[in-house]
Amino acid sequence: NMECRVCGDKASGFHYGVHACEGCKGFFRRTIRMKLEYEKCERSCKIQKKNRNKCQYCRFQKCLALGMSHNAIRF
């Protein structure tokens, strides 16, 4: 039983190089595919399941810091 490295929810698998839940997987995919840019935040918000949708900037930064990558495809 793995935990999502981004928000701590139950991970659904290994997505983009990191154990992640469906919510964070979809969030990362949409951000990359649609080339979304979020308003910069300096607060280093703590991303948890209950508040993961509050600060998209910090959520995406955490995805990147954990090594999530669009190129991380498993063979």
Rank of each mutant, 00 (worst) to 15 (best):
C4P: 00
G67R: 03
Y16K: 05
G26E: 15
V18Q: 05
S69F: 07
F27V: 00
N71M: 05
H15L: 07
F28Q: 01
C21A: 02
D9S: 08
C7D: 00
R52D: 14
I47R: 04
R52I: 12
F27P: 01
R33Y: 12
G13H: 04
C55Q: 03
H15V: 07
C4I: 00
F75N: 12
K50H: 08
E39G: 07
G17V: 03
S12W: 03
C58R: 02
Y38G: 02
G67Y: 01
H70E: 15
S44H: 14
S69W: 08
E39V: 10
S69Q: 14
T31P: 00
F28A: 03
G13S: 07
N53C: 06
V6Y: 02
E3H: 11
N71W: 05
E39D: 10
F14W: 09
R59N: 02
K10S: 09
S12G: 06
I32G: 03
L66S: 13
D9T: 06
F75E: 14
K54W: 11
R5K: 15
K50R: 11
G17C: 01
A72Q: 12
R29Y: 10
Q56H: 15
S12T: 11
Y38T: 03
M34F: 12
R29K: 13
R43N: 15
E37V: 11
Y57W: 09
L66R: 06
G26H: 15
G67V: 03
M68S: 02
A72P: 12
C45I: 01
V6H: 00
N1L: 04
M68G: 01
M2F: 05
K50G: 13
N1K: 10
M34Y: 09
M2H: 06
C63V: 00
N1E: 10
K40I: 13
C63T: 01
D9V: 06
A72R: 07
S69I: 08
D9G: 08
H19Y: 13
R74F: 13
K49R: 15
F14I: 12
C58T: 00
F27Y: 00
G8I: 02
N53V: 08
I32K: 02
R30W: 09
F14G: 06
H70Q: 14
E22A: 07
K46I: 14
G8M: 02
K46E: 14
C45Y: 05
H19P: 11
K35Q: 14
V18I: 11
G23S: 15
Y16G: 12
H70G: 13
R52C: 07
V18W: 02
R29F: 15
E3C: 06
N53H: 09
L66C: 09
M2C: 10
R33E: 15
C41D: 04
G26V: 12
G17T: 04
E22N: 07
A65K: 10
F27K: 02
I47G: 07
E22R: 06
I47M: 09
C63S: 00
H15P: 07
D9E: 08
R5C: 09
R29C: 12
K10W: 08
N51S: 11
K40V: 13
C41A: 00
G67D: 05
A72G: 13
Q56N: 09
F28W: 08
C41R: 02
T31F: 05
A20E: 01
Y38K: 02
C58H: 12
N51Q: 11
R43C: 09
R74Y: 10
Y16H: 09
G8C: 03
I32H: 05
I32R: 04
A65W: 07
S12N: 10
E39H: 06
E37H: 10
C7A: 03
T31G: 02
F14A: 11
M68Q: 03
R29V: 14
R33I: 14
C45A: 01
K25I: 13
G8Y: 05
L66I: 14
F14E: 13
F14R: 09
C58G: 01
G8E: 06
G23Y: 13
F60W: 12
F14L: 14
G67T: 02
E37G: 06
C58I: 01
F75Y: 13
E3W: 08
G17I: 01
F14M: 11
R5S: 13
A20V: 10
A11F: 07
E39P: 14
E42F: 09
V18S: 04
K35A: 11
Y57E: 03
G13M: 05
E42V: 10
N71V: 06
C7L: 02
K50E: 14
M2I: 11
F60D: 03
A11K: 04
S12C: 09
I32E: 04
G13L: 04
